[in-house]
Design a protein around this nucleic acid. Structure first.
Lengths: 347, 347
DNA sequence: ATTAGCACTCAAGGTTAATGAGTGCTAACA
DNA sequence: TGTTAGCACTCATTAACCTTGAGTGCTAAT
């Protein structure tokens, strides 16, 4: 059976209505709402067909129809009209985003906050990922006779440092040498690649003259690298779940919040998503736990590389058009502001 | 009316029972549970007295009795028996705490996680506070011709740094001079004091010879300081609330989570608490929003200064003895490990 | 192909009654 | 005088039952 023009129209009406009301919609109500006059009975027949085709379901015999994941997918791909953000909203977003972008972490936490407020959903922001992260700057800075600070900066602007305690006083020469050695060997290399090679061994061969110092510093070098590889997840608007009818019962709200709070797993899910605007609906999600939710994510760029993610998670019944526009606009904005602050080599 | 020996015994029995069961307890049940045989009728009389004195309440006429905040206070102050952690538990805690204390933030997040698991409550950890935080180390490090890194370290081991972009190429001499200038002027000073003085003005007087560089750097100096003053709050075990009978309904769970997620306000509340082990019960809390909860916090020390906090929040019906012991033990442990890693001047 | 009509279904909400854990009071008892 | 047994009373909780109304599916007429 093919999807006639009319079927599509009915399906679309059901979906948009359900997105707004969260109530199953019946034939009589729908008949009244549709512009053209089709009788409830006809609509019932069409609905029945749509159900056979897998686009609608029934919570129970005497309830109205509800769109299935398949219906949402069709909706997102072709039925949904493009949502244009108001100029006014755009300005508000831009203003709030540009508040404080001097620290990546803060900017992202801020972005997540804005996003959850605008969408009334749970939002998240993920710091730039590992893959294309390269070391840009390595330095060892003396503090006092037995303490020094190791500082690493990546191309994406991530800074990490650590106080290193040496077992015996060090000479300035030695740490300068080591600093240069590290720079020569690892600058421009990917974090993951450095981690993968057996650094400790190769260093100890080359650096026998510095002796003990290497023993103090290299393990710290590695652990700091590891540290920088850890993407960080910012969540916001968790309690928005309580105002969503679908989650208006303890069991479901609890489940949702427990999933959301398993940050490691959630991060994993997000890291595995492609770049660009990605929408996954209900059972399209590979992860069992979130097959009742939809996820919309988009990636933002730092230094021209699209590796961080911003997005929302909520019930499959969400306003895909509007939310997608918001996220897209926000990530574009973030990308722009990160380019401006971090470096302007291209100008 | 005075609290007779027997009244105390009855009150204590009611409290311990209620802490475990969360159910109002009646005279008959209590009579059976008490070692000595007192008839239900007598217990009823005593209960009635205790209610008049404000130690007990009634959810409704035909329900058992429930301890009031006043009762819990009495319990905590004098009735409660000291809870001794098992050697076994202690070892487990120590082992998990010492896992990774190379970064303060991680160690605290980890501590909060352990604490919420052990208590089945919502836990939090607060990074060291502002008051006694002094600058220990200031440095400006050249990266490339127009970028440098400003690094600040406090006595409590907090490190913060920021990439500063200068409007025009700088000379090494100048930044070294500025670095020394800042060190001479601000090392050992409290962050808050530095923030309070009108730095910009005084600098521009003294530093006319460096010109533009000051304009680039000083605002960053200030914002980085501000940054370091921000204490950070780590929360864990939020969803534990769902397994607590008191919160077994949407409204209350929602309220609780919303309060907990207003991190700024929560931080404020925690910052205002004294050092040492502090227990506040229900209406003893100044903050309206948490007057149905009890808070237990203890402070841990970094570098011998007790300024960070670790604690839990939950219903007034909580196992004060056990939880207090756990928190106390954990903060002691944290203080120890922070002393060992950060410096051993005293040995 | 469309529609009106009708029997049927079922969740939700309201009413009622039974249950039982608990109280307060009174009078008897040691 | 403090303690206890007994009894009437209260009230949250639960289950059983009924009513309502939104909705369906099917059939027969248009």
């Amino acid at each position: 059976m093919a999807l006639s023009e009319r079927k599509l129209k009915i399906l679309q009406a059901i979906i948009t209505d359900f997105i707004n009301s969260a109530e199953p919609i019946g034939s009589r109500t729908l008949s009244k709402k549709l512009g053209i006059s089709i009788s409830p009975a006809t609509i019932r027949n069409e609905m029945s067909d749509l159900e056979d085709m897998g686009y609608l379901t029934h919570p129970h015999t005497s309830a109205g129809r509800v769109p299935s994941d398949k219906a949402y997918r069709l909706y997102v791909n072709s039925l949904m009209e493009k949502y244009e953000l108001q100029e006014d909203d755009k300005n508000k977003i831009t203003a709030r985003l540009s508040n404080k972008f001097d620290e990546l972490d803060k900017a992202l936490a801020n972005a997540a906050e804005i996003l959850s407020e605008l969408t009334n959903l749970t939002s998240f922001a993920l710091t730039p990922g590992v893959d294309s992260n390269r070391l840009k700057y390595i330095n060892l800075i003396p503090v006092d006779e037995k303490n020094l600070v190791m500082m690493l900066v990546t191309e994406t602007g991530k800074v990490s440092n650590k106080i290193v305690k040496t077992t015996e006083p060090y000479s300035k020469d030695k740490i300068e040498f080591l600093s240069k050695f590290l720079t020569v060997n690892y600058k421009g290399k990917k974090l993951s690649d450095i981690m993968a090679t057996d650094i400790l061994e190769s260093c100890e061969k080359d650096l026998t003259n510095i002796g003990k110092l290497v023993e103090n510093i290299m393990p710290n070098f590695l652990s700091t690298l590891e540290n920088m590889m850890n993407v960080e997840l910012f969540l916001d608007g968790m309690t928005n779940i309580f105002s969503i009818p679908e989650y208006n019962n303890l069991e479901r709200a609890k489940m949702f919040l427990e999933i959301i709070n398993r940050k490691k797993e959630l991060t994993e899910v997000l890291l595995n998503r492609d770049s660009g605007v990605i929408i996954t609906i209900g059972n399209e999600n590979i992860d069992q736990a979130i097959q009742e939710c939809s996820l919309i994510t988009a990636s933002y760029c730092v230094d021209g590389k699209c590796i961080g993610k911003l997005g929302v998670i909520g019930p499959t019944r969400m306003n895909y058009g509007e939310i997608t526009s918001i996220i897209e606009y926000m990530t574009e904005n973030l990308s722009k502001s990160f380019r401006l602050t971090e470096g302007e080599e291209d100008e």
